[in-house]
Amino acid sequence: MSEYLLLLLSTALVNNVVLVKFLGLCPFMGISKKMDTALSMGLATTFVITFTTAGSWLLEHWLLMPLGIEYLRILTYILVIAAVVQFTEMVIRKVSPPLYQVLGIYLPLITTNCAVLGLPLLNVQEKSGFAVSLIGGFGSSVGFTLVLVLFAGMRERIALASVSSTFAGAPIAFITAGMLALAFMGFAGLVPH
């Protein structure tokens, strides 16, 4: 049990998907202007990542490996990801049209969020079991949501600051992201490998 807890902590904080592994930077910069939107995006991504890590593990072990067609891995994973994203999009459009409007193009773009494809591939590389894959995926996406919301909070504040025109917008956001990564370095070594 404590092993899984540590795994959760490790994937969420110590090996944060955005700040340490540098995956999923596109939505990290794109959907972090408002805290509420960031939280929704984080939750949608969490949903997608959790399902795709589970789904792709199942496909990997029950379909690709038995049939010996591992070379189709990326293709099948993307098929699963695209389907889950499509499903999420339909649900959000039905449940919350304003959120659908706000997330806009970034919602279908979860498909191309490299964290979503990267995490299942890393699981394969590390030969993780099903539970570890699932919990790792969930932890990673929680970490993604966490930094996305933290970052959005700071960007809301920076939007009110009188940043000089040279640095206003994306440049200062990148600097802030760098500082956030510095802060997350403090978690290094927290979970022994």
Partner: peptide, 27 residues
């Protein structure tokens, strides 16, 4: 053949699910 069949079946299943979802969550 295996590759083709498996991908086709997979695509068909996912497509079916999405098709049902599209009806359930129609706007």
């Amino acid at each position: 053949i295996t590759a083709l069949t498996s991908l086709t079946i997979l695509g068909a299943i996912l497509g079916l699910i999405l098709g049902v979802a599209a009806r359930v969550f129609r706007v």
